[in-house]
Nucleic acid binder design. Structure first.
Length: 190
DNA sequence: TTCGTGATAGAG
DNA sequence: TCTATCACGAAG
């Protein structure tokens, strides 16, 4: 199980190293194939830039806490709090399902495994993550945590974060190269 | 390409 | 109160 220490570094390092780990969520699990990093300071796309409640969240919680919020009136988003030299969040955008696949299909109302967790709103639906998991510690309960896979040779691609307008030039989205489970194709260049 | 949806926060 | 904004997804 990945321990708290892991999240006591900067958001970019955490984001990169989370790719290829496995997210355990109850009876379901999936390999993390796409994340985005957000910095508490100086990142206009981060919640902390406009939302006092996000800044209070950081004060109130330890590294490794879940930051879950509702967006567009429809979707839950899962982030993990990073508190090191730099504070911030890592948003989970896509998983490659490994366990509990039938459960996920049922929750999503779909059969195609590629589409179960290929987006931040999709993966929370597939895993039944909601606001009740907000502020939950992801470093202490083996039923809700991250684990490293021993074999992992992880080939990363960095490109622009999706769906944001501010600070859009930063290459803070990380994906597992050529994974068919990511939300959107990697786009390089301007 | 469009459009619904609701929480948040800041202005009036 | 009102309104702009938003780390989205699905239908078409």
């Amino acid at each position: 199980m990945i321990r708290r220490k892991f999240f006591e570094r900067d958001p970019l390092t955490c984001a990169r190293e989370l790719i290829g780990t496995e997210l355990i969520w109850g009876n379901c699990a999936g390999i993390v194939v796409e994340v985005e990093a957000y910095a508490a300071i100086g990142d206009e796309a981060a919640h902390t830039f406009t939302r006092p409640s996000a800044r209070e969240f950081i004060e109130r919680n330890q590294a490794g806490a879940a930051y879950v919020y509702f967006n567009y009136g429809v979707h839950w988003m899962l982030n993990v709090l990073v508190k090191g030299k730099e504070n911030g969040f890592v948003l989970f955008r896509a998983l490659e399902p490994t366990r509990g696949i039938e459960r996920m299909k049922k929750r999503r109302g779909l059969d195609d495994v590629r589409q179960l967790c290929s987006g931040p709103g999709k993966l929370t639906q597939a895993l039944a993550i909601t606001g009740k998991h907000h502020e939950m510690d992801l470093c202490s309960d083996p039923r809700r945590c991250f684990v490293r896979r021993s074999n992992a040779i992880v080939d990363l691609v960095a490109d622009r974060r999706i769906g944001i307008t501010r600070s859009a030039d930063l290459h803070w989205r990380f994906t597992l190269r050529d994974s068919p489970f990511i939300s959107r194709r990697v786009k390089l260049d301007t």
